[in-house]
């Protein structure tokens, strides 16, 4: 695992305080450093680190390639994880996602284009970062506030019943993989 970075290493300011650092390489070969506390927010990455047997001594010499996440999304994810690495456990809510207040810093971070937000959710889903997933979903849900059904169809690209039926018919008419 000795991939040479083709672009400068992205340094996130807050990682410097933590002595244990890991390197992550995005699908487009951007290299990121992330602290141990922060990387633990990603179940996928932390499982990988544990399974690879990375330690404080050898972590920086063994960058972790993440094929499914590009540099742009990885940068957002590293920023998010560093920001929230020392968060206390959330209080117990019956319906947590509807009740928490989305912090302004995170709302700003997630003020991105719809397609970018979608790609970020796919990356978050892959890396299994529950808190970021909650926040992203809340931002998407907030788009629906006070909107009419007609507006919702436009905001979310919701097909009409007729379009759904047509899609279903074309899917059932098309030949399967065997031809």
């Amino acid at each position: 695992m000795s991939v040479e970075p083709e672009v400068p290493i992205v340094q996130v300011e807050e990682v410097r305080e933590n002595p244990v650092l890991y390197k992550i390489i995005s699908s487009d070969n951007h290299v990121f450093t992330i602290s141990e506390h922060a990387v633990k927010l990603s179940k996928t990455l932390w499982d990988l680190i544990t399974n690879l047997g990375l330690t404080a001594e050898n972590a920086l010499d063994n960058p972790i390639p993440v094929e499914n996440v590009n540099g742009k999304n990885m940068e957002t994810i590293v920023q998010f994880c560093e920001r929230h690495k020392y968060d206390e456990e959330e209080p117990e809510y019956t319906n947590y996602i509807r009740e928490f207040v989305l912090p302004e810093w995170d709302r700003q971070l997630l003020s991105i284009d719809n397609e970018e937000l979608f790609q970020l959710i796919l990356a978050t889903n892959y890396l299994d970062i529950q808190k970021l997933m909650d926040y992203c979903c809340r931002v998407i849900g907030d788009m629906a506030k006070d909107k009419t059904p007609e507006e919702l169809r436009i905001i979310y690209g919701i097909p009409t019943d007729a379009e759904d039926d047509a899609l279903e018919r074309s899917a059932s008419d098309s030949p399967g993989p065997s031809g």
Partner: peptide, 11 residues
């Protein structure tokens, strides 16, 4: 808020 230019692909 995210740009409303393109629909968010909810489904």
């Amino acid at each position: 808020m995210p740009s409303p230019s393109t629909p968010f692909p909810l489904f």
